[in-house]
């Protein structure tokens, strides 16, 4: 994950029971002047990334570029094989006949785009079969929502942050040391 460089830090983890509460809490905790490390949830909560101030993902650009490379691959493959390397007239069509290549061009565009985008997603999130996940609370893949706060990056004291978390609706606050 992108937070692997934080290994060795001490975190305060607020556990929430509800997605609406945690979304509201993110705003409140930020207003109280606490820097939130990240929020971990069992399912996507819309608006959470915006509330946390995460930049908009550039995955779309990657997807477009990979798709374009698929289009160009298919265009050059069909042109090279049918026009230059071994020209052939089939069905009375010109040796290079663009409309009949549309299916292949389309399929390769989709293939390159999908695989490239998913690969980018896996790499950019630091995912992989041997990756050990940084879990702040094992219940966040079940029914709990965890807000992690890096104590080394916050000026406020541990007791004060715990109080802020509790006030914004955290059911429990734990300390997590990596």
């Amino acid at each position: 994950m992108s937070d692997s460089h934080n290994n060795g830090g001490k975190f305060l983890v607020g556990i929430f029971d509800d997605d609406d509460v945690v979304l509201k809490a993110v705003k409140e905790v930020k207003e109280a002047g606490v820097r939130i490390h990240e929020v971990y949830t069992p399912f996507p909560i819309h608006g959470l990334d915006v509330a946390l101030g995460h930049p908009r993902t550039k995955l779309g650009i990657a997807a477009f570029m990979f798709g374009l490379s698929g289009t160009l691959t298919a265009l050059s493959l069909t042109a090279y094989t049918e026009k230059f390397d071994w020209p052939m007239i089939v069905g009375g069509k010109d040796s290079y006949s663009f409309p009949v290549y549309i299916p292949v061009i389309f399929e390769l565009t989709v293939l390159f785009c999908a695989l490239g985008m998913v690969g980018t997603f896996i790499v950019s999130n630091g995912l992989g079969p041997s990756v050990k996940p940084l879990m702040f609370d094992l219940r966040t893949t079940d029914n709990k929502f965890a807000m992690a706060i890096d104590l080394s990056k916050n000026g406020l004291g541990e007791g004060r942050i715990e109080q802020i978390l509790k006030e914004s609706g955290a059911a429990e606050v734990n300390v997590k040391q990596f």
Binding site: D49, H54, A114, G128
Partner: peptide, 27 residues
């Protein structure tokens, strides 16, 4: 653990994940 690729449900990952799902659906 190996199959889940080290997933931990971070908000940033989820946001990218949803975006990716939408593009995959569009494709």
């Amino acid at each position: 653990g190996a199959l889940s690729l080290g997933w931990n449900g971070a908000a940033k990952t989820w946001a990218r994940y949803e975006y990716m799902s939408l593009i995959l659906a569009g494709l």
